[in-house]
């Protein structure tokens, strides 16, 4: 079990990342709060020794994605909300570029997460493959299709 200081540091360091991952996977604040507790409690209780901050961050991203997946799979989870409220979740923090976010969030989930991991977190396709436990070629395919859809959504503007 980790110390109180380690847990506090992890929450301060990785809360934004967990929040962004929740934004692209979940539909309401209550679920986000559940994921926060699940992820950071798992962090507090796990005995994994992290070799570097990158290793620690990758571990937290993987745990967050799995927690979101588990929550969405939950048989008893019948809470669904429209896309508007999803944007509403991000709205207080988002002042500009909301059209980019909106465009990302309208993509299918499998595209949303590769776009985020690639363009925001800066992971390469093989790294994303490792994180999502997917074949590298599948990741490339997902990235290409996601870029194409995003380009269309943003009126033909390239992502770079």
């Amino acid at each position: 079990m980790r110390s109180e200081e380690e847990v506090t540091r992890a929450i301060e360091t990785y809360s934004d990342t967990v929040q962004r991952l929740c934004l692209i996977h979940l539909k309401n604040r209550a679920d986000t709060e559940d994921i926060f507790q699940t992820v950071f409690l798992k962090y507090a209780l796990c005995s994994t020794v992290f070799e570097s901050p990158e290793h620690e961050k990758a571990w937290l991203i993987r745990v967050t994605l799995n927690a979101c997946k588990d929550l969405l799979k939950s048989f008893f989870r019948s809470r669904t909300v429209p896309l508007d409220s999803l944007l509403e979740q991000a709205a207080p923090e988002v002042e500009d570029h909301s059209e980019v976010l909106q465009a990302v969030l309208t993509l299918p989930e499998k595209y949303r997460q590769v776009i985020y991991l690639h363009y925001y977190e800066g992971y390469t396709a093989p790294e994303i493959g490792n994180l999502l436990n997917k074949n590298v070629n599948s990741v490339y395919t997902l990235l290409n299709r996601a870029k194409k859809q995003l380009k269309e959504a943003l009126g033909g503007e390239a992502l770079g």
Binding site: S15, Q19, E33, E93, Y120
Partner: peptide
């Protein structure tokens, strides 16, 4: 633009405090 858009997404201090 993607980076700036996601940069503006933050976990609230209340959420962090409750989680902690």
């Amino acid at each position: 633009r993607m980076r700036k858009a996601f940069d503006q997404v933050h976990a609230s201090q209340e959420l962090k405090a409750r989680t902690r």
